[in-house]
């Protein structure tokens, strides 16, 4: 496979619980190539993990289709489908849960290698496993190869999980909050490892996080999607969005992030929302899902119509009726002072 194009059309995911329908993903359209970096940010319950799993082919959408190089998975022959599954790998959030506790690092990493016939024979397998451990900075690799997960720290486990994703030479990796469970000093070094892997192996990433600063650090040169209640409400280049946010929700998130400098963080203007409560996914409000909380809510419009994601200029999309939201919100916070 030369390159991989992933296309999501009108993806929707519902779960049913008793008589209620829980709308986890709501009509998401996305299109990206395997050399892109895409970050998804949003609060818990915004659907970012579910969307990641749909892209990795682990969950089937209720409605809509996901096409790989223009084809649906079920239209493909088994060989072609297997190839797609190989090309897209996932790193899960919790390295304490994602590694099999009774398998050594060697077993964990050699299984996919042998399954996909990437290596033959014990000698070659071991060589490849050692190589992978070096790639993820678990050195000296000989010290780690026969260890079990319980003998490793959280950060080391996450590195094993990264190495496992790399075993089958993927084109695209879905990384679901890969550093949210590791310590501060380790976090930065894992991000640096991932950045190096990006360049060395030319893999694309879908990077899921709730931390906007982390999205900027990892995907500052890529694209960013901001999710709210299962919809993408703002989409564009990461730098554009962080420097010049258009959606009131994005503006609120950016204003709420504490920063590691007392002088900066204490001088920040905070946006006050009309309500602190996130709507329940089984009873989403009419119109824009953000309208009960939005400081720029327009009566009769925002509570009636659902804004579509529209381009405000080339490659910056926002789902909001209000123009010039940042200036308006800034004026409001000034009046409150």
């Amino acid at each position: 496979m030369e390159e991989l194009m992933i296309e999501l059309n009108n993806i929707t995911k519902f779960y049913r619980k008793r008589n209620k329908v829980i709308k986890v993903i709501n009509k998401v359209d996305l299109k990206f190539k395997d050399d892109e970096i895409l970050c998804l940010v949003g609060e818990s319950g915004s659907g970012k993990t579910t969307l990641g799993k749909i892209i990795a082919g682990l969950i089937e959408p209720t409605e809509g289709e996901i096409k790989y190089n223009g084809k649906l998975l079920k239209q493909m022959g088994s060989k072609e489908a297997k190839e797609i599954r190989r090309a897209i790998q996932m790193i899960h959030q919790d390295p304490f849960a994602s590694l099999n506790p009774v398998r050594s690092v060697y077993q964990t990493l050699s299984t996919p290698l042998l399954y996909y016939n990437i290596v033959k024979g014990e000698k070659e397998t071991k060589k490849k496993v050692l190589e992978l451990l070096e790639v993820v900075d678990l050195t000296p690799a000989e010290d780690f190869i026969y260890k079990y997960p319980h003998q490793l720290s959280g950060g080391q486990r996450q590195r094993v999980a990264i190495a496992r994703a790399l075993t089958v030479n993927p084109k695209f990796i879905v990384a679901d909050e890969p550093v949210s469970m590791v310590d501060a000093s380790i976090k930065a070094s894992i991000i640096n490892t991932l950045k190096r892997i990006r360049k060395e192996f030319k893999v694309g990433f879908l990077f899921i996080t709730h931390d906007l600063a982390l999205a900027r650090l990892f995907g500052g040169d890529g694209k960013l999607g901001v999710m709210y209640t299962g919809r993408i409400v703002e989409y564009g280049f990461t730098d554009d969005i962080i420097g010049n946010p258009k959606h009131p929700y994005t503006i609120t998130l950016l204003s709420a992030v504490p920063e590691p400098d007392p002088a900066v963080t204490r001088a920040k203007k905070r946006v006050k929302l009309r309500s602190d409560d996130i709507p329940r996914l089984d009873s989403l409000p009419d119109g824009c899902h953000f309208h009960p909380r939005c400081p720029l809510f327009i009566e009769g419009k925002c509570d009636k119509l659902l804004p579509e994601l529209r381009a405000i200029h080339s490659r910056h999309y926002v789902a909001c009726f209000v123009e010039d939201a940042e200036r308006k919100i800034l004026e409001m916070t000034r009046e409150n002072d």
Partner: peptide, 11 residues
Amino acid sequence: AGLITSTPKLR
């Protein structure tokens, strides 16, 4: 100092 330089910043 290491903790400070290893924390990602928004701005």
